[in-house]
Simulated scan of single mutants.
Amino acid sequence: MTDTTPDPQEPQQPAQQPGAQPPPQQPAGPYPPAPVSPADERTWSILAHAGGIVLGFIAPLIIWLIFRERSQRLDDQGKEALNFQLTLLIAHVVGWVTIWIFIGSLILFAAWACAVIFGILGAVAASRDEWYRYPFKITFVK
């Protein structure tokens, strides 16, 4: 004789009535990210360029990672600022390695001056809704 009582550890499936439609499936993943408004794009672009003056590559990296899927402009400008700041990081490392000779202090000063000047130029261009390109950089992030 078989026992017809359901096992409490097994999940119960609701009985499907003949001709009834199955329930709609829920989306498998999270909802797509909401797009960024043009005013917010401008603000975050300014911060990506100007943030490198104070925080180095950290500011554009965080901005790019957060907004890269939400805005084409922030994806582009975040990568642009990040690549420039990573290039300056290499210059800082070379400057500190060669600080014991006179050229190291010149390299450090030049890297600092480039960060300030081109960071401000990038922020001003972003405030005018322009896509800024740095005059020199090594492309690490494509």
Rank of each mutant, 00 (worst) to 15 (best):
residue 51 G to A: 05
residue 61 L to G: 03
residue 70 R to C: 02
residue 71 S to C: 13
residue 81 A to Y: 00
residue 109 F to H: 13
residue 43 T to N: 08
residue 96 W to S: 08
residue 133 R to K: 14
residue 18 P to E: 13
residue 139 T to R: 13
residue 135 P to I: 12
residue 90 I to H: 07
residue 32 P to W: 02
residue 55 L to Y: 07
residue 67 F to M: 00
residue 85 Q to Y: 01
residue 126 A to L: 05
residue 137 K to Q: 09
residue 72 Q to T: 15
residue 29 G to T: 01
residue 40 D to K: 12
residue 122 G to S: 00
residue 141 V to N: 02
residue 35 P to C: 06
residue 8 P to I: 11
residue 125 A to P: 07
residue 125 A to I: 10
residue 86 L to W: 03
residue 64 W to S: 04
residue 136 F to V: 10
residue 110 A to Y: 11
residue 95 G to W: 03
residue 45 S to V: 13
residue 90 I to Y: 07
residue 114 C to T: 12
residue 93 V to G: 04
residue 132 Y to P: 00
residue 40 D to M: 15
residue 126 A to I: 08
residue 127 S to W: 09
residue 20 A to P: 02
residue 129 D to L: 15
residue 113 A to D: 08
residue 112 W to N: 09
residue 6 P to F: 15
residue 123 A to Y: 03
residue 55 L to K: 06
residue 86 L to F: 06
residue 110 A to C: 14
residue 113 A to Y: 03
residue 116 V to S: 06
residue 36 V to E: 00
residue 89 L to T: 06
residue 113 A to K: 02
residue 26 Q to R: 12
residue 44 W to R: 02
residue 36 V to A: 08
residue 13 Q to V: 12
residue 110 A to G: 11
residue 94 V to H: 08
residue 85 Q to C: 12
residue 78 G to W: 08
residue 23 P to T: 14
residue 39 A to N: 10
residue 71 S to A: 09
residue 73 R to G: 01
residue 17 Q to V: 08
residue 56 G to A: 06
residue 97 V to P: 00
residue 71 S to E: 01
residue 140 F to G: 04
residue 76 D to Q: 14
residue 87 T to Q: 01
residue 92 H to R: 11
residue 45 S to D: 07
residue 60 P to A: 14
residue 16 Q to I: 04
residue 76 D to C: 09
residue 141 V to T: 09
residue 91 A to N: 06
residue 54 V to H: 01
residue 89 L to G: 07
residue 133 R to D: 11
residue 13 Q to I: 12
residue 133 R to A: 14
residue 103 I to S: 14
residue 70 R to N: 05
residue 61 L to Q: 01
residue 51 G to H: 05
residue 98 T to V: 12
residue 40 D to I: 13
residue 73 R to K: 05
